[in-house]
């Protein structure tokens, strides 16, 4: 089996595995270059910290409050705000659900739903590749 990535889709390991992506507001077009830690325990698309959510004005295309997702975690159920935004990452340029905690700061994470569109290769604590690679 052979997996072929573009060189630009590979990164040197630095404390963790993270996916670079551009997040843009659907209404205003404001955007930010971000890096989200790969989190296979998170079943959604993307999480951002509340500062990024506010800075990008993601409240302009929010889901209704009655549909904000609730996550069951080790420390209880946490309620998140949820918005639609455009995400550009290797092999993907589409709308995605972006969440941030209703209370608290949050982090930048890339979850399983976003990872489904990517081929991910984690090579020890040396380098990793995330992209639209083909397996031959």
């Amino acid at each position: 089996m052979r997996v072929v990535f573009n060189n630009s889709d590979c990164y040197v390991y630095d404390k963790g595995f993270a996916v670079p992506f551009i997040l843009a507001n659907l209404v205003t077009g404001e955007s930010a270059d971000l890096r989200g830690a790969i989190d296979t325990g998170f079943d959604g698309d993307l999480m951002v910290d509340s500062e990024t959510y506010e800075r990008l004005n993601l409240r302009l295309s929010e889901r209704p409050e009655s549909e904000f997702p609730a996550y069951r975690t080790f420390s209880g159920t946490i309620l998140f705000k949820s918005s639609l935004a455009r995400v550009t990452m290797p092999g993907r340029n589409s709308m995605a659900e972006v969440i941030t905690p209703v209370s608290g700061l949050g982090k930048i994470l890339v979850g399983r739903r976003a990872l489904k569109n990517l081929t991910t290769l984690l090579h020890k604590a040396e380098r990793y590749c995330v992209g639209d690679a083909k397996i031959e």
Binding site: V27, G41, E67
Partner: peptide, 19 residues
């Protein structure tokens, strides 16, 4: 603003220990 599909129910999702 709100952008959504009408009638979607709130989901309770599970977060594993990844973070």
């Amino acid at each position: 603003g709100i952008v959504t599909r009408v009638g979607e129910a709130r989901e309770e999702r599970e977060w594993l220990a990844g973070s």
